[in-house]
């Protein structure tokens, strides 16, 4: 009897455990893969750097230093010297400090461009998915038009039409993401619309609005979050591209990697590291977000559950 009762007690105990939501479960699965961890480490370091860089930068990134200026000529930009780890930039500023602080500005552009893109995209996709019918048709044709324009061309057109400021870059880049997010959310919500649990809620007499916000939206948001992570990577690159083309921020003093890279293009023969370091920084960060996004996508895929 003893074995029987303890075994049975075990069974009952195992029943009492649990209570893990699906999101937690997915998160746990995500970080079982080394790729995800690498992505997370890169992104984490980048975010930490962005936060602390103004405090740890050895020099003021927004002020020329006479020591550097003294040796600055059109054909010579000073390299590393005591106190200045990577030497000067083309304006006699401390290049290393600017590179550090650049993380903050770059993150700012990337995050806001993505956030704006996600917000507008989700409003469009959410409306289309929640209402369906002609609302859906109208909004989706609209996004089709946006999608039919090559993304960079779209951003360039917007940037060209607006005064050159940081927000111009952000908005131009955000617009690239809008149709993508709209379609994604709309598609996921359409799938939810015909799902059994939404039908069950309807049959229960739950209000339409509650169904949309409690059931359809939360169950559709996963792919959007993944896409947002991936978009952060491309947003940073796109912003850099705009800056590179001279359509970016007109404030040349701002320490932002894309802008730094853009402004260094004529100086490649004089001091290639001025372009090299921002470029590498952008690539690594973009890679970090991509790795993270891809592994999240993988673990959210129901086919890969368990």
């Amino acid at each position: 009897m003893s074995i029987l009762s303890t075994r049975k007690a075990d069974k009952i105990d195992s029943l009492a455990e649990g209570g893990t939501s699906l999101a937690m479960d997915a998160l746990r699965r995500t970080f079982r893969s080394p790729v995800a961890i690498l992505g997370l480490v890169i992104v984490g370091l980048f975010v930490i750097l962005a936060i602390i860089s103004p405090f740890v930068a050895p020099k003021d990134p927004y002020r020329p230093y006479p020591e550097l200026k003294a040796e600055l000529t059109p054909s010579n930009i000073p390299g590393p010297m005591p106190g200045f780890l990577l030497g000067s930039d083309q304006n006699g500023y401390d290049f290393f400090s600017r590179l550090l602080v650049g993380a903050q500005q770059t993150l700012f552009v990337g995050v806001f461009a993505t956030l704006i893109g996600v917000t507008i995209g989700m409003i469009i996709g959410g409306l289309a998915g929640a209402f369906g019918g002609w609302v859906d048709s109208l909004l989706m044709r609209l996004t089709d038009i946006m999608l039919s324009i090559p993304s960079l061309l779209l951003a360039i057109s917007i940037a060209a039409l607006m005064p050159g400021s940081q927000w111009t870059v952000i908005i131009a880049v955000a617009m690239i993401g809008v149709p993508v997010f709209a379609r994604l959310l709309r598609g996921a919500m359409m799938a939810q619309r015909s799902s059994d649990h939404v039908l069950a809620a309807t049959a229960l007499g739950v209000k339409r609005r509650t169904i949309v916000f409690r059931h359809m939206l939360p169950n559709s948001i996963g792919p959007v979050i993944v896409q947002a992570t991936l978009t952060l990577a491309t947003a940073i690159i796109d912003a850099a591209a705009l800056s590179f083309l001279g359509l970016g921020d007109s404030d040349w003093r701002r320490a932002e990697w894309g802008l730094m890279l853009g402004n260094a293009q004529e100086l490649l023969s004089v001091k290639p590291s001025l372009a090299f370091f921002p470029a590498i920084a952008i690539i690594v960060v973009a890679l970090g977000f991509t790795l993270l996004g891809e592994s999240m996508r993988e673990s959210l895929d129901p086919k890969n559950r368990r």
Binding site: S21, S195, D196, L199, A203, L204, G205, N219
Partner: peptide
């Protein structure tokens, strides 16, 4: 119509897909 639904309920074939995976 919504109120009238209280008196008529439904049980589904696939018990997993008919329960919202995100709700306790």
């Amino acid at each position: 119509l919504r109120k009238s639904r209280r008196r008529m309920q439904m049980i589904f074939q696939d018990p997993l897909s008919s329960l919202d995976p995100r709700q306790s």
